[in-house]
Nucleic acid binder design. Structure first.
Length: 465
RNA sequence: GCGGGCGUAGCUCAAUUGGUUAGUAGCGCGUCCCUGUCACGGACGAGGUUGCGGGUUCGAGUCCCGUCGCUCGCGCCA
């Protein structure tokens, strides 16, 4: 649209005829004159259709939430009509022409500043309307801002952004995979990544040295307020580093990004707790360090937790990893891992970033030595054949000059929830799912046609009770 | 998989221990009135298979059973 003026720029055009475009937030029809509050992505302004305006007829037909283009003169308001403390409270647009670009039916719910009182079922069905609300606009735009600032920081720190595959291999360890049937290989399946973990480590072997990615991660586990099937992470991996290097880089980045977003941090550098200290002090490995006043002010209280146990016993009595099998044991425990002894006391070079009671990030220094990685899997009861099958490709890669490396993943939703003071992950996602796993607006999942099933070599077994 | 909460008008909610034809309800919507409103105001009006199915009862929005959906937590989530 030529010559369109954004609403937050109108002040520079007082006395001029301009075109604004946006949506009708509020309509106040007084018979002989009509007021509209017009909203675009930069703000809101009052427009007035005066009695003598040629637009009066079309004003009568302009419904709330319609998309419109308005031509009019930007005027200073008469002194008695100035609204103090409101954006553009001292100016208004005197309408000469209204063009209805997209008429709106009456919306199914009120698009007020904060729609959190509306039932989530309705909000998700009409997510494109819910997202028009001031709070959701703020959340989604802040998310973009957070990602942009992280990107800028990382590019300045010599990182390379690299995409890793979406269709990858299923791993039986860890969480349940979302799988994708293969048409070319009937009966075989890809899995969607739970994390780019193995690819980013291979990128370290590949000499990229400093990698990051805004990575989508997918897990087929039951949902929670702070956990969905899909989430995004700032995924980072670095070569020739120790734990202190990764933590320092991430801490500097988070402080810079948070402060650029206008947030206040309770403490910096971030306090550190060993896992044992955290469990003793807070009874959990994630905790909220703020007092009530700090909570009300939206202050962010970051902390690190480190020195986690590497292994824990399963119900079956076997050893399994607590966080990440690719993690390095702390150096003083490497000999024990290689010898397969003292398993219950082995600690890992794992570090979690905690903020306001949420785990917002986690990473580790990885085993780049094949003997250590192999020993970890031995501890977990894997025989040589099973090790080969699970991580043979990693052991092979590590035989070709693997640099010491480590990294972290910062959960974007968890981080944004804490930054924006939201309690639900869905409030910082544009199109989240319901807890039952149904997508917003479109109603996936749905059955496939017989043709699609047959192409994939799949048969649906009828569920029996 | 388990446990808790919820489901009444487009939205938000009422409806006594089970008792007439569901409530002058607020917002929204429709028609009309209104030249300075800003969540404009005023008058009138429309709008309901109480999620769905069954049961108990003379009588069910209300009690019971089942089921579906939403949600919070536990399990699970490297």
């Amino acid at each position: 649209m030529k010559n369109r003026v954004y609403i937050n720029q109108l002040r520079e055009h007082i006395g001029n005829t301009v075109i604004i475009a946006g949506w009708v937030s509020v309509r106040r029809d007084q018979g002989k004159m009509v007021f509209f509050d017009i909203r675009d992505m930069t703000g809101t302004v009052q427009t007035v259709v005066l009695t003598k305006s040629p637009a009066l007829e079309s004003a009568k037909q302009t419904s709330r939430e319609s998309a419109v283009a308005i031509t009019g003169i930007v005027n200073k308001r008469p002194e008695k009509n100035v609204m103090a403390g409101v954006q553009n409270g001292d100016i208004e647009v005197s309408v000469e022409k209204i063009e209805i670009l997209g008429a709106s039916d009456a919306p199914p719910f009120e698009i007020i500043e904060d729609t959190s009182m509306i039932s989530e079922e309705v909000r998700l069905t009409y997510r494109y309307l819910d997202l028009r609300s001031e709070r959701m606009q703020r959340n989604i735009r802040s998310r973009s801002e957070f990602v942009r600032l992280c990107r800028e920081y990382l590019f300045n720190a010599m990182f390379t952004e690299i995409e890793t595959p979406l269709l990858t291999e299923s791993t039986p360890e860890g969480s349940r995979d979302f799988v994708v049937p293969s048409r070319l290989h009937p009966g075989s399946f890809y899995a969607l990544p739970q994390s780019p973990q193995q690819y980013k480590q291979l990128l370290m072997v590949a000499g990229m040295e400093r990698y990051f990615q805004i990575a989508r991660a997918v897990r087929d586990e039951d949902l929670r307020a702070d956990r969905g099937f899909e989430h995004s992470q700032i995924d980072i991996e670095m070569s020739f580093v120790e734990q202190e290097d990764v933590m320092a880089l991430v801490e500097t980045m988070i402080i810079e990004v948070a402060e650029k977003m206008g947030k206040v941090l309770k403490q910096k550098p971030f306090p550190r707790f060993t896992y044992a200290e955290a469990m003793e002090k807070f009874g959990a490995d994630k905790f909220d360090l703020r007092d009530d006043e700090e909570k009300s002010k939206g202050i962010l209280a970051f902390a690190w937790v480190h020195r986690f146990p590497f292994f824990e016993k399963t119900d079956g009595g076997d050893w399994t990893f607590t966080h990440n099998p690719f993690s390095m044991p702390l150096s003083e425990h490497i000999d024990d891992v290689l010898a397969g002894k003292n398993t219950e006391n082995i600690l890992t070079a794992q570090y979690d970033l905690v903020c306001n009671g949420h785990e917002t990030g986690g990473g580790s220094i990885r085993s780049h030595r094949p003997d250590i990685l192999r020993a970890v899997y031995k501890t977990m009861g894997y025989d040589d054949a099973r090790i080969e099958q699970s991580v043979g490709h990693m052991l092979e890669a590590f035989r070709y000059g693997a640099p010491p490396h480590g990294g972290i993943a910062i959960g974007i939703e968890r981080m944004l929830m804490t930054v924006m003071g939201e309690n639900y992950l869905r409030e910082v996602q544009a199109f989240p799912m319901t807890r039952g796993g149904q997508t917003a607006v479109m109603k996936a999942p749905k059955p496939l046609s017989d043709k699609q099933l047959s192409e994939l070599g799949l048969e649906i077994k009828k569920k029996t009770k």
